[in-house]
Design a protein around this nucleic acid. Structure first.
Length: 628
RNA sequence: GGGCCCAUAGCUCAGCUUGGAUAGAGCGACAGCCUUCUAUAUUGAAAAAGAAGAUAGCUGAAGGUCGCGGGUUCAAAUCCCGCUGGGCCCGCCA
């Protein structure tokens, strides 16, 4: 059952469709669909359809609008239709539209999903994927929040979502951190058991990088470490697995969970090799002529792709060099090759034979966390329909290469690969660098602690709250402030990090939305009503209430748009609109002073509002709180 | 040489895919809603005025060559072309 607003739009659509036929006017579905929206001017729902028709049949738009208005019969929920300045405007039967929308929200709508566009198809969202050598800093946090929120949005649209984290456990940075960990004395570092492991490892990693600058011999040792750690039986391997990676993951998951972020699977880069994904990928690429072994010239001995022949988008043209190496002349695969193989697995172009075992049996969201590795079992995580990677825009080129290779391989086009490219977070005057250690003092953990203490300061003035309660509220509010600030900004916009901006509780902020939720909850609590058996009726819906109702009606459309465009900031904007609109309603209608069924009706609107606001907040990973 | 992204109010940003009616928020600054204080004139009170304060809320008003120049269109912040400024990228690194 669709929402009343959606049904109405469909009715209007078919009215226009028959008008087009009557006028003898060629049209496309998009022509009509895109013309209909909530009105910014006269009426409630508006259409610019007359302009489009007029153009095609060579008449004045005002005349066409007037003629359309004269011919069409108003749908059930429409009181009147007018033609104004060439627009066709629908004026709703406020009371019926309002009551039906509230009823829809309360009884049926938005229960599990905003829409069913996903049709249960599978989407794997890759996010965070931090090198396991330092803690999350505010830049990684942006990635994590976008990925988490996007996953929620996809889920709300009826997709089955796998939240996935790619772990770079091979390669030089891992070797550097490992070398540092195995040479603490030379670095002059001692283990501080009270410190979180990721923070400690990060500092070791920074120190290792500093000492490379002064002692050139160290780099040679690190290269050796790198080679040794890839062999199963070495001490390096054992330390890497036992003392570094798993300790790191423990610490990292602690950070993730403190932000309410829970993923489903961790895939280790080393397993791309172990489970032969890489071999199969190269085999297929070679078989289809996408990659080949170069036997002469500067790439002699390498397996490589010629980008000139695969680039569907214009981004792979005009390169300084069109050859993209996948396998080095020493026989080892590079990052791009592994990423292509990995995506082939994600999308089922390589059949599912990666094994997984349980890392965390039950996370706080109630679901387990699995990690790839030998000794696990097959879990069927591969073979998704859509693969989305949340990766910063510096890797655009690399992602284009992966996309190009996948599209060249998979001509059927039933599989989709998307790169959600977001801009990086910088500090004022400097960049965040894992290697240089500019992140120190700007970790996700630091940010959360600061947020909690600022929120606590504000809350501490409130009387009638217990200490535990204050702590809990402070945490929820602090997290809301952080998440909202990061998510309300479009992904393609660079963020210059500032404590005050990240932790604002004023204005367009997460806490403002939570506050509005709490206000609604207080009204409901004071009313003593828990639910409605039958929805009450009302004689006249005031303007302020109607504005809010029209916003509630948009929920499904908004979520779908955020999903289609991979832009959580659309939800953030909607949240602000909702909250502001509720505040206007709340200030203008003294709900609890009303009587009888009118009072109940307004209360039912508060219930509906609270439900939609709560769901929208949840899409950004923000908790609704009853009191603050 | 080429590709991608950004440019909208003093600041931070929505809006741009799908062209449509008067380009929207927040912050800041301004005026109020709330609190307190202030007159050696006979006393008290109120109003008004002034000062200070608080402020997760509200109201009002102010603030714009939508980077620049062309083009398409009945209609351009939105689409196309060309510029300017800023960021990122084009490795047998990851």
């Amino acid at each position: 059952m669709d929402a009343p607003y959606l049904i109405l739009k469909k009715e209007i659509f078919s009215l226009f469709e028959s008008e087009a036929k009557r006028l003898g006017c060629q049209y496309t579905v998009e022509d009509i669909e895109n013309s209909i929206s909530q009105s910014k001017g006269i009426g409630d729902i508006s259409s610019s359809i007359a302009f489009r028709f007029a153009k095609k049949i060579g008449r004045r738009s005002e005349d066409v609008a007037a003629e359309i208005v004269a011919h069409i019969k108003a749908p059930e929920l429409v009181k009147s239709i007018t033609a104004d300045n060439g627009f066709v405007n629908f004026h709703l039967k406020r009371e019926r539209f309002s009551s039906e929308t509230i009823e829809y929200v309360l009884k049926r709508g938005y229960e599990d999903s905003a829409s069913s566009v996903g049709g249960r198809s599978r989407v794997v969202v890759e996010y965070v994927s931090v090198n396991p050598v330092h803690p999350w800093h505010v830049g990684h946090l942006r990635n994590a929040l976008i990925g988490d929120s996007l996953s929620n949005i996809y889920q709300a649209c009826g997709y089955e979502v796998v939240r996935e984290n790619y772990l770079d456990d091979l390669g030089l940075q891992a070797a550097e951190a490992l070398w540092g960990l195995m040479n603490l004395k030379r670095l002059g570092v001692s283990i501080d058991p009270t410190k979180k492991f990721d923070h400690m490892l990060g500092e070791i990693y920074v120190k290792t990088n500093k000492s490379i600058e002064t002692d050139s011999g160290i780099m040679e040792e690190i290269r050796k470490t790198n080679r040794l750690m890839e062999n199963d039986e070495t001490a390096e391997r054992k330390t890497l697995e036992g003392s570094m990676i798993f300790e790191y993951l423990k610490a990292e998951r602690e950070t993730a969970s403190s932000f309410g972020i829970y993923q489903d699977i961790i895939v280790r880069e080393s397993d791309i090799i172990h489970f032969k994904l890489f071999d199969k990928a190269i085999e297929q690429l070679k078989a289809k002529g996408i990659a080949k072994l170069y036997t002469e010239g500067k790439y002699s001995g390498c397996i490589a792709m010629d980008l000139g022949s695969i680039g569907s988008a214009g981004t792979l043209t005009g390169l300084k060099e069109t050859v993209k190496v996948l396998v080095r002349s020493d026989g080892t695969p590079n990052y791009a090759a592994k990423d292509i193989a990995y995506h082939m697995w994600k999308l089922g172009i390589i059949k599912d034979d990666v094994l997984f075992s349980t890392l965390v049996p039950k996370q706080k969201n109630g679901k387990p966390l699995y990690i790839s590795g030998k000794g696990g079992k097959e879990m069927g995580f591969g073979g998704a329909d859509v693969a989305i990677s949340v990766i910063d825009s510096q890797q655009n080129f690399e992602q284009q290469v992966v996309k190009g290779a996948i599209e060249a391989l998979h001509e059927g086009k039933t599989k989709e690969i998307k790169h959600l490219a977001y801009e990086v977070v910088e500090l004022e005057g400097s960049k965040l660098s894992g290697r240089k250690g500019t992140w120190i003092g700007y970790t996700a953990d630091d940010l959360l602690n600061e947020a909690k203490s600022r929120a606590l300061k504000l809350i501490s003035q409130h009387e009638g709250l217990g200490e535990d309660e204050k702590e809990q509220i402070a945490k929820a509010v602090g997290i809301a402030a952080i998440k909202f600030t990061f998510l309300k900004i479009s992904p393609e916009k660079k963020i210059i990090f500032s404590w005050d901006a990240a932790l604002t509780f004023d204005g367009d902020s997460g806490p403002y939305c939570q506050y509005t939720y709490a206000r609604a909850s207080r009204v409901i609590e004071k009313s003593g009503i828990r639910a409605f058996d039958r929805l009450p009726m009302i004689n006249a819906v005031p303007e302020e209430a109607f504005g809010l109702i029209k916003l509630l009606a948009l929920y499904g459309e908004i979520v779908e748009k955020a999903c289609r465009e991979c832009r959580p900031n659309i939800i953030a904007d909607y949240l602000i609109d909702l909250s502001t609109s509720f505040s206007t309603f709340y200030e203008n209608v003294q709900i609890l002073k009303k009587e009888g069924s009118e009072r109940d009706w307004f209360l039912s609107l508060v219930f509906a509002f609270r439900k939609v606001l709560g769901r929208s907040l949840a899409l950004l990973g923000i908790d609704s709180i009853e009191k603050m």
